[in-house]
Amino acid sequence: MDAHQRGQQNPYGMDEECRNCPGLCDVRERVVHGYGDVGADFVFVGEAPSAGAERTGVPFTGDEAGERFQHILGSVGLNNSLPSSEEPELDNAYLAYLTRCRHPDRDPSDTEVTTCEPYLNADVRMINPEILVPVGQRALTELAREHTTKPAEEFDVEECHATTIRGRGFELAPMVHPTDLTDEQTETYIEFFLDLLGTDYRQTKGRRGR
């Protein structure tokens, strides 16, 4: 974890009482802001909190899919705690969502994703990672639209899983959402990520030393 960081949960002190989306703020239990190492090379981005993540307040935790995701992070050296931990000890990884609130009955609307975009943009700008990991199709579509020059609709997460996509300022390394991951896809991603860690993935863009 970054030596100057006090804690991993909502490290930038973003608004936990946000009222920008009436259709979400009146049905949510809490706002789930980013979590992890603010000096990370890798930022993992999902669509929206699951019921488990809403309960814990930590992205990608609190349920079976979260444990599968945290197992992957642990297998590549980014999580120093058990996959079942609700406050994982992350190193070189930061977790966030396109939208920070959960609706119990539906996926977030395009308007809600756009309204919440400044939070994610602020995370990415302040962390300045090397790799963005879209977790699931919605995250891949949104990040590809923002950070690549190709039409976002051309990117299918099943086809792009465990590959790298050259972006503007960042590489994307898409992952099938852990809810849908097969055992084979899980192992494929672990092997891919370990290989990625063994390459010179850092770009020369004025990063501070870790």
Rank of each mutant, 00 (worst) to 15 (best):
E54L: 11
D37W: 09
Q70H: 08
V31Q: 11
V45N: 11
A65F: 01
E29Q: 14
V76Y: 08
V58S: 02
D41V: 09
G74M: 07
G39T: 12
R28V: 07
D26W: 14
V58W: 00
N80I: 13
T56D: 10
E54K: 09
F42C: 10
I72Y: 03
F69A: 06
P59T: 04
G66C: 08
E64T: 14
S50N: 06
Y35T: 00
E47F: 09
G46L: 04
G34F: 00
D26Q: 14
G74E: 02
A48V: 14
V76D: 06
G62Q: 02
A40N: 06
G52F: 05
V27W: 13
R55I: 02
V38W: 06
V45P: 12
Y35M: 03
D26R: 14
A65K: 05
H71G: 13
A53T: 11
H71W: 15
G74Q: 12
F69K: 07
Q70F: 04
R55Y: 08
F69V: 06
E47C: 14
V38P: 03
V43K: 08
R55G: 02
Y35A: 04
F44R: 06
S75H: 10
F44L: 15
E64G: 11
H71I: 00
E67M: 13
A53G: 12
V58P: 09
P59Y: 03
V58H: 00
G34N: 08
G46E: 04
R28D: 06
F60H: 01
G36P: 01
E67Y: 09
D26G: 08
G52R: 01
L78R: 09
S50Q: 08
E64S: 14
S75R: 15
T61D: 03
E54C: 03
E54T: 10
G66D: 01
Y35Q: 06
V76T: 08
A48Y: 12
D26L: 13
V76K: 06
D41E: 14
V43E: 08
T61C: 01
V43H: 12
V32C: 06
E29R: 14
T61A: 07
G52I: 09
V31H: 12
V27M: 11
A65N: 05
D63C: 04
V32D: 00
E67N: 02
N79P: 10
G74H: 05
A53W: 00
D63S: 02
G39Q: 13
A53P: 07
